[in-house]
Nucleic acid binder design. Structure first.
Lengths: 201, 201
DNA sequence: CGGCTAACTTAACACCGTTAACCAACCAGC
DNA sequence: GCTGGTTGGTTAACGGTGTTAAGTTAGCCG
């Protein structure tokens, strides 16, 4: 039974995840229900529970994939520039781009977590931290090379991150004055986040 | 009894709002249902609909009160200092303090909006803008007095706001590395938000 | 062939927001 | 003092939710 199954594994799980993500993106969070996912793939709702303990677990899996994807993007951004200031800017733009390109994913990853879901398991959270570490490493490099001022690393990383997160989440929530154009806004955010760090001036 | 009712008006609406807020704070968003609110005040669930069109409308009323409260705090902060840099710092700390002191309120005001609720009516939104205007006015003052560098006002206001919002929402969502202490973190956020603006250096 | 197991389904529970229909108490006018 | 309407509340019900328990079907192994 599991003779060939070892490689094929269980495609239903994948199908559930893909359908859930697709449904999330196309119809939005509120209309994403177990029954709807099941109906979309032609199974009964309860069969989802054969692959996920509950709805939260399904979301956590979705979040996992989101973090993996974000990490890929940040790694690519990180490799696109060597000089710390440029690299940090590239990371920042990569982060913002990810958020804007995947609003629903960003939402379940960072936004509507605490109130609506069981806590995201701490172990999975390391994946999320990996992305942050790229920021931290770049800061450290910059400090070492003299491009950045001396600073306590962890809080400084969090400050940069929170500036980016604030900007992304306000835009995603449509909270920004519509007269403000996005691109200049994000440029200003990134510039504002980097400015206090740069040693030169 | 109803002879004097003209002045007492309808305390039920108030009772609903207070109970809803209390329930939201004490038990969290997910367990806040119409039936639960009703039960808590000893009425039937449907009687809530005599005072609110639906659950969204109830939340919007809650949000309204949240914005009014935030505005009060920001006004007080704004009056606590005259010099633009100090005033801006006071505003920033007021904003952060409000978020930390009223996490559930902050959540429904800024966090879980887009996906879960009908759009917050644009008219009510002016109330929210009022708070932002205090930031904007302070920036304008600072530019005029020479304390701040020249800048496009609206985007700059949004940048400051998004830095604060990012920090507050990350902390509320418990997303921050636990080794980072909050107070220094917020100080760094405020400093980081102000630094690019200040003219002197 | 008989039995075991894995994959899946149907039925049901307790809850949700919301609507429709009903009811009791009060006030106005005759 | 009785009648009729309005006000403020109720109960019952609909269609939806996540989730669990029990049942069913198919395939493999001895």
């Amino acid at each position: 039974m599991s003779a060939t199954a070892t490689e094929t594994a269980a495609p239903l799980r994948r199908q559930i995840l893909d359908t859930a993500r697709h449904l999330l993106v196309s119809e939005g969070y509120p209309s994403l229900s177990m029954r709807r996912i099941a109906q979309a793939i032609g199974y009964s709702a309860t069969s989802i529970y054969l692959h996920f303990a509950n709805k939260d677990a399904l979301f956590h899996a979705l979040i996992d994939e989101g973090f993996a994807r974000l990490y890929e993007i940040l790694v690519a951004a990180s490799q696109s520039a060597d000089e710390p200031t440029e690299r940090l800017a590239a990371l920042a733009h990569g982060y913002v781009a990810f958020g804007l390109a995947n609003p629903e994913l960003y939402e379940i990853m960072f936004l509507l977590h605490p109130a609506h879901m069981a806590r995201y398991p701490a172990e999975n959270y390391r994946r999320a931290r990996l992305g942050l570490d790229l920021f931290g490493a770049t800061l450290a490099d910059g400090v070492k090379s003299g491009a950045f001022v001396e600073m306590p690393l962890r809080p400084a990383t969090a400050v940069v991150w929170s500036a980016l997160h604030g900007a992304v989440s306000l835009v995603l929530a449509n909270r920004l004055d519509s007269r403000i154009e996005r691109e200049p806004f994000f440029d200003a955010v990134v510039a504002g986040a980097l400015a206090p760090l740069v040693a030169g001036r």
